[in-house]
Design a protein around this nucleic acid. Structure first.
Length: 780
DNA sequence: GTTCGCTCACTTTTT
DNA sequence: GTGAGCGAAC
């Protein structure tokens, strides 16, 4: 949409051309997919199992509607959950119908479309044009103030908890007056709803909306202004929804209101992949679709194009233990392939070692490491693998952690820019008023806030006024005065230079860059890098205002695909992705299924965990490896663990027990005996029986299959160059020598004390001795 | 106002 | 075992 417009045929002409050119989008579809695409009239629910071509159907359906001339691009509402999904859809539709996609203004996330609607009618929901969207940090800062003003003990009732409750209420479409008495008691002895109302009032005063409001305020708008709703009814001829199983009540109500205008709503989803119940998703939405939309056509996509037979059967076997499913039977025409391997190991350390060794071997066998992933239940499990990868020199990427725009330094920088751009944004001003530290503490800020409230002016103006008085004294007064002057000076230059230069100027003159330059922590270097990256990214926008609007809504950036890397991420983050080889470690009771899911949500929680297991298994195309540890170090304590019940739910015919390579190898499961497995007899109680001779052991079989694989690979042609990208213990002597000062991304600065091939032992300042591979450090 | 040190908690997370 | 957040000491 940011592209320059040039002379080209009209959208409808191009759409027609696309159709005339042989309906590219219909090629290679199976019958069910074709039905899902061509049934454009009336409500349609597409139950798309994992790997059955869900996105393909959604995008082709849009292409079909356009090509058949059923609607203009601007008459199609297509909603997704993430920016990434929206982006992918745009790209794929673009591939089918050419540039016609540019005319699809209503393809986006629930939130971005919500904003779009609210911006057009903001005055009807008590907002002024140019209202700001606040993030979680701002939300909590604001709630802290609200709690303080209402004289509630902030230690007993933390703002964070209230934020959670309010989010939850908003997810369920509840305005303050509709929060039930009982629920209001969840916070500060029944004052929950009152605080929620006070928070909403403050938001309006600040001319701001939080993420929940983007939907909730739309609902309020539609309900109180039927004429506006009717306008959208006339506009949208077709509605499409991605990942319908993840919709919450507010989103469901939003869709239902919009769908009153046209019965042509098509929801695509998979009840078996509903894993976001804890953040408000209602599986019920998908389960009762036929009731909500009478006469709905339900289409099941059950042909899987992703995984081999054994993997698919294993995943299906596990998910079959869930009650209350709509039920699908996935099948594939692919070969059976490898069985899902199950390995029991002594402890988490051995698990990390074993998996890392496997991956190192895959690397040596010139396998594509971008096609290997480790999927975990919780992010604390990542550390063991990262440590191991760093030692072995296996390149990896972590998906999930704090996103670019969620990093402290990026938020601070944006707060500076936003304050310069919009003096009315109190929350951003408050964020950076004392960052870097300039002697303006809580007391001073509170005084400024009191003045602002008393006079009904923005914080920034109150700050400018207060420094003229004796209200605050000494250093604080001088610093604040200087900060105010700086901002006024910056604002004068906002028009006179390019926004990237402007940003650099602010970050330098405010002392923000200097703050990180002076910081000795290991991450300071990468924070500075991130700030540079931010400036580079800004360059892609025309104006500062355009950039700021983008970042408030789009919290992700494309991660560059830089070479061969193993992927490390949570099971949640893995939904929608696929890999040739997937490792699934940590299948232990208490961790997976997680104890808290069981405690807090009982059977529903267990079933959601089981769906997570299903999601994990179905990410694998060719190889899936499940493992569990007998002992795990959690919270600093070494504790014994039992294999997850999901391990025993894997269907016998599709798994293969793989021996661990530990020195105690093979006899691990005896440790279960005597302690009494609460989930009944496990196949792991009798490990020896399955293998009559040593040539029958999984270890031997695996060795054989590995030889076979290597043979195949080398016949296909040399991949040696890629193989060498992976550091191995036989690599050449490092160019670093003893005594060299080096810098490491994670451990900071240190001195090389030993060199062994390409592996260095480095004494890190404050982090102790670590063995690292030389490619992970730079000379400092 | 800032810094140090203690205590607490610790699943998953998009917008 | 570790990081965040808060209260008490500088």
């Amino acid at each position: 949409m940011t592209e320059l417009s040039q002379a080209k045929p009209s959208i409808s002409e191009r759409a027609l051309q696309a159709s005339a050119s042989g309906a590219r989008y219909l090629a290679g579809l199976n019958d069910e997919q074709r039905t899902a695409i061509e049934t454009v009239d009336g409500p349609v629910l597409v139950l798309a199992g994992a790997g059955t071509g869900k996105t393909r159907v959604l995008t082709s359906r849009i292409a079909h509607i356009l090509a058949a001339g059923r609607a203009y691009p601007s008459q199609i509402l297509a909603v997704t959950f993430t920016n990434k999904a929206a982006r992918e859809m745009k790209e794929r539709i673009g591939g089918y119908v050419g540039d016609a996609i540019e005319g699809m203004p209503w393809l986006g996330t629930f939130h971005s479309i919500g904003v779009r609607i609210l911006r057009r009618h903001c005055e009807l929901v008590d907002l002024k044009s140019g209202f700001t969207i606040i993030d979680t940090d701002d939300q909590i800062r604001l709630l802290k103030q609200v709690i303080e003003v209402e004289n509630i003990d902030k230690d007993r009732w933390p703002a964070r908890q209230l934020a959670g409750l309010i989010d939850d209420w908003k997810n369920r479409g509840l305005t303050p007056e509709r929060v039930s008495k009982g629920e209001a008691f969840a916070f500060a002895n029944g004052q929950g709803a009152k605080l929620y109302a006070a928070y909403q009032k403050r938001l309006k005063e600040l001319n701001a909306a939080d993420f929940g409001d983007l939907l909730l305020e739309c609902l309020r708008l539609f309900q109180s202004h039927p004429d506006v709703l009717q306008d959208y009814h006339r506009r949208f001829k077709y509605i499409l929804v991605d990942e319908y199983q993840d919709t919450n009540v507010a989103q469901y109500l939003w869709l239902r209101l919009l769908a009153q205008g046209s019965p042509n709503i098509c929801c695509v989803g998979d009840d078996d992949q509903s894993i976001y119940g804890w953040r408000g998703a209602e599986v019920d939405n998908i389960l009762k679709f036929e009731k909500d939309f009478p006469g709905a056509t339900v289409i099941r996509l059950e042909r899987n194009y992703r995984s081999t037979g054994h993997i698919l059967a294993a995943a299906s076997g596990v998910i079959a233990h869930n009650q209350g499913r709509l039920g699908k039977t996935l099948f594939t025409d692919d070969e059976d392939g490898n069985r899902v391997t199950v390995t029991g190991v002594w402890d988490d350390e051995e698990e990390a070692r074993g998996i890392s060794d496997d991956i190192e071997n895959l690397g040596k066998a010139a396998e594509d490491l971008n096609e290997v992933a480790i999927l975990l239940r919780a992010s604390f499990q990542m550390r063991a693998f990262e440590d191991r990868f760093v030692t072995l020199g296996i390149p990896y990427r972590v998906i999930g952690g704090p996103r670019f725009y969620e990093r402290q330094e990026i938020k601070d920088a944006i707060a500076y820019l936003e304050t310069a751009n919009n003096p009315l944004n109190d929350l951003k001003f408050e964020r950076i008023v004392n960052v870097p530290k300039r002697g303006i503490g809580d007391t001073s800020v509170r005084k400024v806030r009191e003045l602002a409230r008393a006079r009904g002016v923005p914080l920034f103006q109150a700050a400018r006024d207060i420094v003229e008085t004796e209200e605050i004294g000494g250093k604080a007064r001088r610093s604040l005065a200087q900060l105010v002057r700086s901002f006024e000076r910056w604002r004068n230059q906002i028009e006179t230079q390019r926004h990237t230069a402007f940003a650099e100027m602010i970050l330098d003159e405010s002392g923000y860059t200097a703050m990180w330059q002076a910081d000795k922590s290991p991450q300071a270097q990468s924070r500075l890098e991130n700030l540079k990256e931010l400036i580079r990214f800004m360059d892609e926008f025309e104006t500062l205002a355009g950039f700021l609007e983008h970042v408030s809504l789009v919290m992700d950036t494309e991660q560059a695909n830089d070479g061969q890397r193993v992927t490390l991420m949570t099971l949640h983050a893995a939904k929608g992705l696929e890999f040739d080889t997937v490792f699934l470690p940590g299948w232990e009771e208490g961790l997976f299924p997680h104890q808290r899911a069981l405690d807090e949500s009982g059977l529903a929680g267990l079933e959601e965990e089981r769906r997570l297991a299903y999601v994990g298994l179905t990410r694998a195309r060719r190889t899936a490896k499940v493992s569990f540890a007998q002992n795990r170090r959690t919270r600093g304590l070494y504790q014994s663990a039992t294999a997850s019940r999901f391990v025993d739910e894997l269907p016998e015919d599709h798994i293969e027990i793989q021996q661990s390579q530990s020195p105690f190898g093979g006899s691990y499961s005896n440790f279960n005996n005597g302690f009494g497995n609460p989930y009944g007899a496990s196949r792991f109680d009798e490990p020896a029986k399955r293998f009559e001779s040593s040539y029958d052991t999984p270890g031997w079989q695996r060795a054989q299959s590995q030889w076979r694989r290597q043979g195949e690979k080398s016949r296909r042609g040399p991949k040696l160059i890629e193989g060498e990208l992976v550091a191995s213990s036989t690599a050449a002597q490092s160019s670093f020598s003893i005594g060299t000062r080096v810098h490491h991304q994670k451990f900071g600065f240190g001195e090389v004390v030993e060199v062994d091939g390409n592996k260095l032992t480095v004494e890190f300042e404050g982090n102790g001795r670590k063995r690292v591979v030389d490619t992970f450090v730079q000379a400092a």
